[in-house]
Design a binder for these strands. Sequence first.
DNA 1: CTTAATGTTCCCCA
DNA 2: TTGGGGAACATTAA
Length: 256
Amino acid sequence: MPELPEVETIVRTLIPRLTARRVLAAAFHAPRVLRGAPPPNLIDQVIRQVRRHGKHILLDFDHGTLAIHLGMTGKLLFNTPPNPHLRASIVLEDATLQFEDIRQFGQMAWNKNLENQGPDPLEVSGPEFRARLKGRKVPIKTLLLNQTFLRGVGNIYADEALFEAGIHPRTPAGKIGRTRAERLLEALRQILKSAIRQGGSSISDYVDAEGARGAYQQNHQVYGREDEPCPRCQAPIKRLVLAQRSAHFCPRCQRF
DNA sequence: CTTAATGTTCCCCA
DNA sequence: TTGGGGAACATTAA
C-alpha cells in the first residue's frame, strides 16, 4: 500500500494524534516485526516529532527514533477492534496506535541507519537527478524502484511518471538525455504532489491513520490498466515484468 | 491449483 | 562494480 504519497498522507494524519504524547506501554506481538536491536524502554517517553523519510515513518523520542516501514500491507490505525493481523501496539495517554500487517513485510526498527537512502524526489535538483542517471545501464523502471537511487517511489508512481514523461520502462537509465530526464523528474514531482493532495492511491485496502481512503487511483493512466486504451492515443496498455514487478506502459507513447 | 499483489534483501552468475 | 535473474519472506483474493 505505501509509496511516498500514501506514507506522507499517513504521517499527516498521525502528527496531530501522536505529537507530544507519552507512551504508556508498547508491545510487539509478532517477533518478525522488530528488526535489529530491540528498542530501549519506551515507557514514559514522549513522541517529540513524526516525520516521513522516503517510505519510512519516523517517531522521534528524546533518546532515539523508531522507524516504521509498512511493507506491502502495513497499516497504522487507532483503537481498532481485536484483529489477527495486529503486529504491534503503542499505548498512549489518549489512544492506542496499532500496527496491522497481513503479509508481515513491514518492519519497525530502532535508530535505523537511513544513510543509504537516495534523495527525496520532491527535493532533488535537476542536475543531481541527471548525474545519478549517468552511466547506469539498468532499465529506468528498475532504477526508480531502487530506494538508494531515489527514496519513496514505488511501482504505481514509477509507471505513472514514465507514462507522463513518455519514456519506455526498459530504457537504459544512462541513455536518457537531459531534456527527457528533466521531463521525468518534473512528471514525478507533479504526480507525487497531486497524489498527496488526493490522499494517495487506494487500490485494494490502503487507508490513512484515520481510516480514510485515498482517491488518486482514479487518476492512474496506466497502472493496473493492462489492455485498456491509452488515455492519450487509444493503443492498448501493455504489461511486462521487470525486476519481478509488473510494468504498465503504452507501447505507442513510450518509446526507447 | 495458479497467479498476482502499493516491498526489500540476499544469493548466484556473467 | 554492474546488472540480470531468481528466491525468499507471508497472506489473501481472484
